[in-house]
Amino acid sequence: MRCFVGKIVTHEEVQSDLKQLIPDAALRRRMSRVVKMAVSTAVECLGGVAEIPRVDAILTATGWGCLADSEKFLRNLITEQEQLLNPTPFIQSTFNTVGGQIALLGHNHCYNLTYVNRSHSFEDALLDGMMRLADGESRRVLLGAFDEMIPSLETITRRMGWWRHHTAGEGSCFMTLTPEREADSVAQVVQLDFPIEELSAEECRVRYATTPDAELIYCDATYEELYPTRSAARFSEAVQRIKAGTKEVVLYNNCMGMRPTVLVLQWLG
């Protein structure tokens, strides 16, 4: 089972103006920071709202979801003693808000699923996408991952000792996947293996690399900047390496307390 990666964009690479990317003011004004970040990354990846109908599956992944709106809703619940609760933070706080907003923007009622499995969320969504493409159920998948950090979570997790050796991170990354090589294809995913036992960098190379030139991106518990879907950003880094001329990249992800995953990406040949 393999698939081809088309355009891939992280939130740092979004160039266009938010109002241009999300022209519907009514949708835009209700979006929290993470929803704006993720939806604008998705639209930039597709090249505009008009392109949203061209995908036939929208898959999103998040470990933490829309934290700011969840916090707002829960605080309201306490301060208003479970009365007079604003509907907007509740509506916007669900994990599938981003997938839903992309669908609403593009009037696209296709298969739309959000995976929330801590640090496996991205890999689970990718597996779903690859299976749909392999089974012929989809021809063009939009796959994305996002997570946000908010001050209260950073404070709580700092007290828990999470950030002694790491930095609290956040980010979003979106890409298109197709079953066959297309004009915009830049790399192919040839293997997705998880969950596996913990491996050293050398063991990873021996088990998964098919060429001596293969490069390894090894993310373990010592990795510096963390959030649950960090592996999506590392996936983007692997694609950039392929675009720069590397023939194979082995991506090992063992962050944030779940069993490791391995992805193997190759050039188009």
């Binding site: 009514a26 007079l84 609760l85 509907p87 907007t88």
Partner: peptide, 17 residues
């Protein structure tokens, strides 16, 4: 202003709170 039904619920809360 182009408000919708969700905004109507928010306005009810503005008046009450």
């Amino acid at each position: 202003l182009g408000l919708d039904s969700i905004d109507a619920l928010e306005i009810i809360l503005i008046l009450e709170k």
